[in-house]
Structures are given as C-alpha cells and as structure tokens.
Design a protein around this nucleic acid. Structure first.
Lengths: 197, 197
DNA sequence: GCTTTTGGCTAACGCAATTAGCCACCGGGT
DNA sequence: ACCCGGTGGCTAATTGCGTTAGCCAAAAGC
C-alpha cells in the first residue's frame, strides 16, 4: 500500500472544504478520511482528534477572514470601509458556511490557544475601519465589540436561515451598515469621553 | 415497576434545565433519561427523537424570551425600552445558556415549522420597541433585522466566551445600546423614505 | 544496505441514538 | 368485580461514530 502523503495542513484544508459542502455538523472523521482516500484512524497521525480538527478549521477561517477583509478595506475609510469590510465578511460566510460554523461555539482552552490568536488577527481589520471614526481610545474596545457583534449577528442569522420574511436581505444589510455608520458618528461626536461609563 | 407519569412537556422542561446545567452539547438521551428516573428508550414514547427534542427546547426558549422581553418593556419607550429589552435578553442568555444554544443553528423544516412561529413570537417585543422610533413602515423589516442581529450577535459572542479582552462586558453592552439608539434616531430622522433603497 | 522513524492499516472498545418487541399498569365498559 | 385494550415503561439488539492499540511496510538517514 503506497502512502497517501498527507499532512496536517492538507487534512485541515480538505476538512474545511468538506464542511462547506455538506455542512459543518455533517463533517465526520470517516467521511473526511474517505474524501482523502484513507481510513479514519490514519487521520490521528496528523491531528489529535475531532476537537483539534475543529479548532484548526476555525483558525483557518479566521485567517481567511482577516485576509479578505483586510484586502477589502484597502484604500477606503469611513462608511466605505465599513461597508466593504462587512460585505467581505458576509460573502465569506455565504461562500464558506462550514468554515464559519466552525468558528461558532468555541471555548478557548487557555490564554495561549492558537484559536484566540487567530481570532485576534481576524479582528484586526475592523480595528482599522474604526480608526476612520473619531472613537476615543478608551471606547475602542467597546466599539470593536459592538461592530463584531453586529456583523457576527447578521451573518449568523443569515447563515442559519433566520430571516423568514421575504424582504430582500441585501437591502437589510445596507440598512444595517447605515445604522452603524450613523451610530458611530453620533456617539463619537457627542460623547468623546463620557465619564459615567 | 410503577409508571413514571411522564409527558412531552415534562421531558422538554427537564431537558431544558439539564441543558442549562451541563451545556447543550452535553445533553444526551441517556443523561436526560437518568435525570427523569427512566431508561433512554422510554423517552421515545413522548418525543420523536433528538432533533424533535432540540426543536422543542428551542421553541420553549423563544417563548420564554418573548415573555421576558415583553414584560421588560412594559411602560417604557425609546432608549429605555431598547435597553430594557436588550438587558432582558442578555440576562436570559446568561441564565439559560443551554436553552439559548438550542435556538442556534436551526434550519426550519418548512414554512409551518412550530419553531418558526415561536421565533416570530420572540421577535414581537422588539417590534414594539422599534415603534418608539420614527421608523418609516417600509424600513421596519430592515430595522427589525438589524436589532435582532445586534443583540443576537452580542449575546452569542458573550455566551461562547468570544470576548477575550478584559474590558468589562457590561460597559460594552451599554455602549452598544447607545450606538444603536443613536443610529436609529439618526436614520429615522434624516432618511424617512430613501427611494434608492 | 541496514536501521530507524513514520504513516498507513486492521481490530477492537465504548458510547450515543434509535428500533423491535415484550409485558405490566391503568381506565372504561359490562 | 372483572376483563381488556391501549399506553408507557422495560430489555435487547443494531448502527454508526470517535478513538486507541498494535502491526507492518515505506521512506529517510547513516
């Protein structure tokens, strides 16, 4: 029996693609092994187990997101940058639903979890976007969390088919961007260093 | 062997509590049966299977959310109502993490899925909150989706421990409410009937 | 060319969900 | 009071998944 020549990266890449095709919850060791032309136990020579695999897929997803969003905001700022970043993220969620699902429901194992570092990298571009608004430094974390919540929420609701009404989702997305853009301007302009928070 | 006197509602209630205690992903038929003083196959006399159980827990969660948020916004409007609704939702997510997790990642089986109806009921109170802002009717759906995205996003990130930085989460939450409140006012005031959308 | 490491394999275990099929309990009718 | 049918438990068995143990050949290094 000739060797398949697998390595960790190849397995993770294949797993991510498979998850996108059949859905993250349908991703199974046996199916992944079959896709790779190998038996299930062989996978354990390269990954520690299912949990490890999931985390690696998630890390891959975060990195892809960072790259895509980073590229999208090149040369833009303010509302343009916000819209471009959001759109890049949304496209990614729709294109790679399995990878996106892998990033949900993760509990970091510790402060040095690679997942954590990857998610930090994924946030980076949003920080750049926010720099285009006049956010006081002590509010930056809050603003970052807010923006992250907003886009994560929209993307995950869309991904799970949470929007039932027939109204166009793209329009709702534009509306949401408008809402956040205006909110950021208003909050930056009128409450630069609100002491009661 | 005397009968345990179970019924569907009792099982779902117990499952929801158990999910809150040990985590939704740890909820298993065997564990649930043990909690109820019964063997696992007996559960199938009352529920169709695991998927059915999950959907019923989710429906329960949506209904609880609708009640809690509805109660929270009684007699309030505008920013107050927004904050109260958001806080009620957030409290619920923290109090009943298992139930909340059950509502994620559901794909409605069809247009008459009970889950769908329950989630509609869960949205109701937010519609009431939005009535306190001057949202033009044709934008109501968009605004509703936006608000839902925002709070769902924040809650789910918090529930999954997605906020690593040590900054206080409650403060971030206040900031988010401020952001949305100002955004809604701005968008309602300046673009009452934007034709290009 | 021999040895060592490495990356496949088969076999086997434990656990979860589910189904089949049995049998005792409980309520209603005679 | 009795019987009798449906209901709600049970045990046993099946399937499929993740994972571990232990074997053996292929590649890699001396």
């Amino acid at each position: 029996m000739p060797r398949a020549g697998l390595d960790t990266a190849a397995i993770v890449t294949a797993a991510a693609e498979l998850a996108d095709e059949i859905g993250f919850s349908e991703l199974t060791m046996a199916r992944l092994a079959e896709r790779l032309g190998v038996r299930a136990p062989s996978l354990y020579k390269h990954i520690a187990g299912q949990d490890d695999l999931h985390r690696r897929i998630a890390a891959l997803a975060f990195d892809e997101a960072a790259v895509a969003i980073g590229a999208a905001i090149q040369g833009r700022s303010g509302r343009d940058a916000l819209a471009a970043a959001a759109d890049a993220l949304r496209t990614l969620v729709l294109t790679r639903p399995g990878c996106y699902a892998a990033t949900l429901g993760l509990t970091p194992t510790g402060p040095d979890d690679p997942i954590l570092l990857a998610s930090m990298r994924g946030i980076g571009p949003f920080e750049a976007v926010l720099r285009g608004y006049d956010i006081p430094p002590q509010d930056m974390t809050h603003a970052l969390r807010a923006v992250r919540s907003v886009f994560h929420g929209f993307a995950s609701l869309q991904a799970s088919g949470g929007f039932q009404l027939s109204t166009d989702i793209g329009e709702s997305f534009d509306y949401l961007i408008d809402l956040i853009d205006r909110g950021l301007r208003a909050i930056a302009g009128t409450a630069p260093a609100d002491p009661h928070r």
